[in-house]
Computed example of a mutant assay.
Amino acid sequence: MRAPFFIFSDGEIVRNQNTVLFIENSGKKKRLPVEMIGEIFLFGNVDISKNLIVYLSRKGILLHFFDFNEFYLGTYYPMEFNSSGKTLIKQVQVFLDEQKRLMLAKKFVLGISLNVLAVLKYYNRRGKDTLPYIEQIERLTRQIVSIKSHNDLLALEGKIWECYYKSFETIIDNKDFAFDYRSRRPPHNPLNAMISFGNMLLYSYVLSEIYKTHLDPRIGYLHSPMDKKLTLHLDIAEIFKPIIPHRVIFTLVNKGIIKREHFKKVDGGVYLNKQGLILFSKQFDHKMNEVLLDNGKNQFLTYRSIIRKEILKLEKHILGISEYIPYISRW
């Protein structure tokens, strides 16, 4: 599986015969191994040309763009070579059927809740007093099956996340990384900055994997496509937030890898600085390539492979081949 490539400096990406070079403004050059790259994450102010985009398109390489404060701007991907009219029609039919859409959305929320519980129980076994949060989320989880409307399901999901986020200070136990409350645009402290950045990285990874299937990323079931242009990757990413970006945060903070010095204040918000972005992205990519035993099968997979498999499971559900069951972490 081809790997991601991160660019944090300002400069220019140019095609050099049958390869690609990144030239920093300082003049430093770095060759990009295009045959080994699946996507490029652009955080710096980088110039690109049409000639380069044509070349990257032929290689099937995606470009993810972020602004100066790490917010995701968008993705360039090659023309929809994997698109399928049959699958698109099925996706729309499931969305328009209120009961089918609600059933699928419930599965996503169940996946969120069970993976949240897996994280909390993991740290409880390691001496962190997360039992009050476990008990509360277990009570909320039991309510999922009886939910009758999409709005009520979203409200329940919000309660699950709210309770879970309160546990962060227990898991981290570091006054420099107090949670307080969830804030997004802008994040008001380092912990919220990492949550937002980790989520955006995860969204980009999931979106890349969706583009490799026949599914259309514009049609989601938990998140409404009426509110956003792309929503399916948000649905799938929710399941993996507790076990990928949040575990990355706990590792970085509890091991002292990331510190207050790796953040900056801009326009009333707090964001990772360049060194912080590098540290976080490196740990995130390491997590994505972590090898673990797939649930119930004698098969070792990376998290990236598991996400790809999750999307294929969803596609089979939409096509009526097999019922979708969300991935649940086992530790």
Score class of each variant (00 low, 15 high):
A155T: 09
A118S: 15
E138A: 05
D152M: 09
L201Y: 00
T170F: 15
V119D: 06
R125I: 12
K159S: 07
R101F: 02
N115R: 09
A105D: 00
D216W: 05
L207M: 11
Y164S: 00
K212V: 03
T130L: 03
L191V: 11
Y211F: 14
E138P: 00
D97H: 11
L191M: 07
A155L: 11
E135W: 13
R184S: 09
N199T: 10
L131R: 13
D129C: 04
A193E: 01
V109R: 06
T213H: 13
I195M: 08
S196M: 05
N124S: 13
I147P: 08
I195R: 02
T130A: 08
L140V: 04
Y164K: 00
S183K: 12
D176T: 12
D180S: 15
E169Y: 09
L102C: 10
I210P: 09
L140N: 07
L114I: 01
T213M: 13
R185T: 08
T130C: 10
L201K: 00
L102H: 06
P186M: 07
V116C: 14
K106C: 02
P190H: 08
D176W: 08
K106I: 04
N174R: 14
Y133I: 01
L156R: 09
K128T: 08
H214E: 15
Y164D: 00
V119L: 11
R139P: 11
N115D: 14
V119A: 06
A105M: 01
Y181M: 14
N124M: 12
S204K: 01
L201F: 06
R125S: 15
T141M: 12
L215F: 05
E209C: 07
L114H: 12
L96A: 10
L207A: 07
Y165S: 11
L202K: 01
A193M: 08
S149L: 10
D216H: 09
K107M: 05
A118K: 10
I144V: 02
Y181I: 14
L131A: 13
H214T: 15
R125Y: 15
D173S: 14
V116G: 08
H188Y: 14
R126L: 11
L202E: 03
L202F: 02
N115W: 06
N199C: 08
D129I: 04
L153P: 05
I160E: 06
L202I: 00
R126H: 12
L202M: 07
L110I: 05
I144S: 04
L207H: 02
D129V: 04
L131S: 12
A105G: 00
Y133R: 01
I171G: 00
N174Q: 12
F177Q: 07
G198V: 10
Y123A: 06
Y165D: 07
R126Q: 11
N174Y: 11
L202W: 01
S183C: 08
L154D: 02
R182W: 01
I210A: 09
